[in-house]
Computed example of a mutant assay.
Amino acid sequence: MNLQSPYLIAEMTQEIFTCNEDLVLESGGTLPGFQISYTTQGHLTPKKDNVIWVLHALTGDANAQQWWSGLVGEDKFFDPSKHFIVCANFLGSCYGSTQPLSENPKTGKPYYYDFPNLTTRDIAASLDRLRKHLGIEQIDTVIGGSLGGQVALEWAYTLGERLKNAIIVASNAKASPWIIGFNETQRMAIETDQTWGVRHPDAGKKGLETARAIGMLSYRHPQTFLQNQCETEEKLDNYKISSYLRYQGLKLANRFNALSYWVLSKAMDSHDIGRGRGGAENALFQIKARVLAIGVDTDVLFTSEESRFISHQVPKGTYKEIRSIYGHDAFLIEYEQMNYILKSFYLEGNG
């Protein structure tokens, strides 16, 4: 990556890519055409060697500069004055891409519960359609955390020589029973909502509040709650942590929908880089890119051991660790450590 090229900063543009070709899914079904909402910022170099593709987590969107503000943006590590930055909203998500509330072309009505199951491999395949649409032959870096890291790893496998660097943050090569279990309890919470099953955009909204509260417990480490939600007075009820989790649940339910949450959590469960490829070790060994796997020492959802496994199995792997009390969410918080780790990785690559 050329970190010195002086290019004028372009305003971030948000666009819709419409693919009229069917997307054949791993399940054997098809998605009859789809849309992907995406953003771009910056300019391609004459050699077109400065593409940075950012992949979001479960409830993220295409505006990486907002949710990863410590890494993406003017004067940040991934700077649009030097890089051409792309971020696309995943299929199934409710921020402009085709999702359960989109119109099913076969019926003329929203999909709702008829939306097909997606896997991380399907999401990566849809991103590759967008890559080809944009005329991008080579990608310098694909970077993603959590679900975004799972999709990034899948895409790194299929991109082969077209990808130089893959940065997999707080993620894994295969969804563990622990992660699937957490996701299942969240879907069970959605199912208890009496509106679940109704064909309405707000179906499952109260259940989603509970699901998010459950999720928050896995995104952080107990030490985080001891520091931020510990009581300073003796109480028998109305605890800080109770208010915090209810607030977080309501906050998500007001910006997301239960159907998208269901689809994307299922996609996370499906992740297995080795499926049909001779196992995870064999599949990881086929990845051509330099791979930086970043773990978090206190991550109880995507453990640091899972990140180490990725770095040990790929031919050109590096492992680095974030030390933090914030658990899984540390990759969205500990910007100083992230910047140091990334700088070291690129310096090693240019050495």
Results as ranks from 00 to 15, higher is better:
Gly215Pro: 01
Ser171Asp: 07
Leu217Glu: 10
His200Arg: 13
Gln186Ile: 03
Ala211His: 05
Gln229Lys: 10
Phe182Cys: 10
Ala189Met: 10
Trp196Tyr: 02
Lys109Ala: 12
Ala211Ser: 11
Ala170Thr: 11
Ala166Asn: 00
Thr120Ile: 09
Glu154Lys: 06
Glu231Leu: 08
Asn172Thr: 09
Val198Cys: 14
Gln138Cys: 11
Gln223Arg: 06
Ala189Ser: 14
Ile168Asp: 12
Trp155Arg: 10
Glu231Ser: 07
Asn228Ala: 12
Asp202Cys: 09
Ser171Met: 10
Gln223Glu: 01
Ile168Lys: 14
Thr195Glu: 02
Gly145Asp: 05
Thr192Val: 10
Gln223Val: 08
Ala175Thr: 11
Ser146Asp: 09
Ile123Gly: 10
Ala156Leu: 07
Ser176Arg: 05
Ile168Glu: 11
Tyr111Met: 13
Asn183Val: 06
Ile136Val: 13
Ser146Gln: 04
Gly181Ala: 15
Ala124Thr: 08
Thr120Trp: 04
His200Ile: 08
His133Asp: 13
Ser176Ala: 03
Arg212Cys: 07
Phe225Ser: 03
Ile143Thr: 08
Ile136Asn: 00
Leu217Arg: 08
Pro116Met: 06
Arg131Trp: 01
Asn104Phe: 09
Lys206Asn: 10
Gly215Lys: 03
Asp122Met: 01
Ser176Cys: 02
Leu127Asp: 00
Ala173Ile: 05
Lys174Cys: 07
Ser146Arg: 12
Gly160Arg: 13
Lys132Phe: 09
Gly135Thr: 12
Asn117Thr: 06
Lys106Trp: 03
Gln150Leu: 15
Glu231Met: 09
Gly145Trp: 06
Gly160Trp: 09
Gly108Asp: 03
Asp122Val: 00
Asn183Ile: 05
Lys174Glu: 05
Val198Pro: 05
Leu159His: 01
Gln194Met: 13
Asn183Ser: 15
Met216Asp: 08
Arg121Ala: 01
Gln138Gly: 11
Tyr112Gln: 13
Glu161Thr: 11
Thr224Lys: 13
Val151Arg: 08
Phe225His: 02
Arg199Cys: 10
Gln229Asn: 12
Pro222Asn: 00
Gly160Gln: 15
Gly215Met: 06
Gly207Asp: 03
Leu147Asp: 02
Gln150Phe: 13
Pro201Arg: 07
Thr192Tyr: 08
Thr120Pro: 15
Ser126Gln: 03
Gly135Trp: 12
His133Thr: 03
Asp114Ala: 09
Ser218His: 02
Thr119Cys: 00
Arg187Asp: 14
Ala173Lys: 10
Met188Val: 05
Ala156Lys: 02
Gln194Arg: 11
Met188Ser: 14
Gly197Val: 04
Asn117Asp: 01
Tyr219Asp: 06
Gly160Asp: 06
Gln223Leu: 07
Pro116Gly: 07
Ile190Phe: 05
Lys205Trp: 03
Gly148Ile: 03
Leu147Thr: 09
Glu209Thr: 14
Cys230Pro: 11
Arg131Gln: 03
Thr224Gln: 15
Lys132Gly: 00
Gln227Glu: 12
Asp122Lys: 02
Ile123His: 03
Gln138Ile: 08
Ala211Asn: 04
Cys230Phe: 12
Ala152Met: 08
Ala166Lys: 02
Ile167Thr: 12
Gln194Ile: 09
Ser126Glu: 02
Met188Gly: 13
Thr195Gln: 03
Leu134Asp: 07
Phe115Asn: 11
Ala125Thr: 08
Glu231Asp: 06
Ala189Thr: 05
Ile179Ser: 01
Lys205His: 04
Leu159Asp: 01
Ile139Phe: 00
